[in-house]
Structures are given as structure tokens and as C-alpha cells.
Amino acid sequence: MMSSNCRKTFRVMLAAAAGVMVMATADIREAAAKVDSVAALLPKSIQEAGVLRIAIPDVGKPLAYKEGAELKGMDPDLAQAVAGVLGLKAELSLIPFAAALTGLQSNKFDVSYGEFYVTAERLKVADFVTNWQDYSSFLVVKSKGYAPTALADVCGHIVGAMAGSAELETLKGAAAKCAGNAATVSAFPSVSNAILALNSGRVDGVLINRGGAQEAIHLDGTLSASGEIGGGPTATAVARTENSAKLLEAIKAAYDHLIQSGEYAKILEKNDTAYGAAKTAVIYKEGSTPPKYGF
């Protein structure tokens, strides 16, 4: 996604500009057909409203990015498909990743995408339905010779990740274990900002999801992904309200229908994210034991 040419970098990064909420009214992708048995699982208030308010965190290609007035990527494609199965209009908002869970808590959104790892901390404020699998890699500039393959390799370096992400907490934990060879950890509002810092030499490596790293490398061969850090199921976050129980079941049923019908596989293949395909959706809510990740 990046190059040493600043103008090229800036042009690419416009696709995922940070900190701006954008209503995706120009999105014209075809929605999946309504499935009455799945739509019937929805809470009555959402059925009557006819709209599913969906946050799409700004995580860049191939997951969520702007192209002109249109919001593209795996996340908006899945969001539209889920809403279609539920017989609802998808109201998509592009937001910073760090604002996703607070947006659910303040009732701005019903659900949020963003490839959330399901953690005990996050289960305190929201519920989740798994829909994909991912792991993280360090995105680095090949010519600089820094190719970390394990978390211990951050010692003595400046590294970064997105604010509010599991990768950021992972880096902080790794940095705390560096003895006599400190690591500096920087937080960025979006992947695009983090990668701009990487290209300008302000950080040595950026820990991001493998899909984001893959897209960057496709667009700029001077970059490389190093290591497989963590990994496991990722999820759609669902606002914890009086509607939670029914909405969770409806979202899960919508994902399972898309998986079984083959529409899910088509969406992932279109977005070059088939490496993370899930076989079924799983609900995690307050009191659930979260999945184990390899952090």
C-alpha cells in the first residue's frame, strides 16, 4: 500500500482517511435476499425500524476503505449481506476503530465490524458473533533489514499499532518485558496513519492484521510482512441492550445462512480474505469464556 514516494503514499492513504464518519449512502452493492425465518429472530423494535445501524471501523484495504463516495471491502460487503438476509436496510458509518465500542455503548450503532478479538475486557461492554479468523504480522520496510518474527523482537525498537486494538495491547505487554533494551510503542488512530509513520521512519514496524499487511504489500513491493503473531476468531460486536439476546441470535443465523449458501465464500474471495474463512458463527456474551488466542 505504501512507497517511499510521499505523494504516492498520500494518495493511497486517502482511501482510509482517519477520524471521519461517513454515511455510505452511495453504496450500490446488491444486498442478499431476505430469509424470513432468520428475519423473524430479530427484536420487534428493529423489525419495525427496518434499519440496522452498522459501524464500519476505518481499518483500510481489504477490510474497509473509501473509493470515491463508495465504501468498499470485506466488512461493508458482509454488513450489506447480513442486513439483506435480515430484511433490513444497512445504514453504514465509517468511523475510527477506537470509537466502535463506545459508539455501541452510547446507542449510536446496533453492531460494529472491525475484526474484534473477543477478550474478557471487551465482553464487559459488548456482545459478539464470530464471523472470520485472523492473525497479526509486523509490516516493515524490507530495505531497513528489520524483520521481527516474535514479540521479543520489538525490544530496542519503535513499533506501533492502532489505538484500541488488540495489537496495541500486545505490543505494550511485550515492551514491558524488555529488560535494559526498551521498546517504544506508539498508538495511531488508523492503519493509514501508522503506515505513514512507518514510511517516514518514525516507527520500525507496525503490528496489524494480516489482511491489512497483505494489501499493503500488494500495492508496494518495498514492504514486507514478518511473523505470525496471535490469531484466532474475530467477531462482529453487538450493542448490549434490551435487544441483545434476539439480535445476537439473528446475526448468528444470518452468518450461518451466508456460509451455508456460499455467499460468504464469494464475499471473501472477492476481497482476497478467504484465508480467514470461518466454518460457523459463534456467540459470545456477558459471562462467556472468551476464545484462547496465541498472544
Results as ranks from 00 to 15, higher is better:
M13R: 09
L14D: 10
A15Y: 00
A16W: 05
A16C: 06
A17M: 10
A17D: 12
A18G: 09
A18I: 08
V20E: 13
V20H: 07
V20Y: 06
V20G: 05
V22C: 06
V22T: 10
V22R: 08
V22F: 06
M23Q: 13
A24Q: 07
A24Y: 04
A24M: 07
T25V: 14
A26D: 06
A26T: 02
D27K: 06
I28M: 14
R29W: 00
R29E: 04
R29C: 01
A31M: 09
A31F: 04
A31Y: 10
A32Q: 14
A32H: 10
A32Y: 04
A32F: 05
A33R: 13
A33I: 02
K34V: 11
K34R: 15
V35Q: 09
V35G: 02
D36P: 05
D36H: 11
S37F: 12
S37Y: 08
V38L: 07
V38H: 06
A39M: 05
A39L: 07
A39Y: 03
A39K: 07
A40P: 02
A40I: 04
A40K: 12
L41T: 10
L41G: 10
L42S: 00
L42N: 00
P43G: 13
K44R: 15
S45L: 02
S45Q: 10
S45I: 03
I46D: 08
Q47N: 00
Q47C: 01
Q47S: 05
Q47R: 10
E48Y: 02
E48C: 01
E48P: 01
E48W: 00
E48L: 05
G50T: 03
G50M: 09
V51E: 00
L52W: 04
R53E: 05
R53Y: 00
R53A: 02
R53W: 01
R53Q: 08
I54P: 00
I54M: 01
I54Q: 02
I54T: 04
I54D: 02
A55E: 04
D58L: 02
D58P: 01
V59L: 11
G60D: 11
K61A: 12
K61D: 03
P62N: 12
L63C: 05
A64R: 10
A64I: 09
A64H: 07
A64D: 07
Y65V: 15
Y65N: 15
K66L: 13
K66C: 04
E67R: 10
E67K: 14
E67Q: 14
E67T: 10
G68D: 02
E70D: 12
E70A: 13
E70C: 09
E70N: 09
E70Y: 07
E70S: 11
L71D: 09
L71N: 08
L71S: 08
L71Q: 10
K72H: 06
K72Y: 01
G73H: 06
G73E: 03
G73W: 03
M74D: 05
D75M: 06
P76F: 01
P76Y: 00
P76M: 02
D77F: 08
D77Y: 08
A79D: 01
A79R: 00
A79P: 00
Q80Y: 06
Q80G: 07
A81K: 14
A81D: 12
V82P: 02
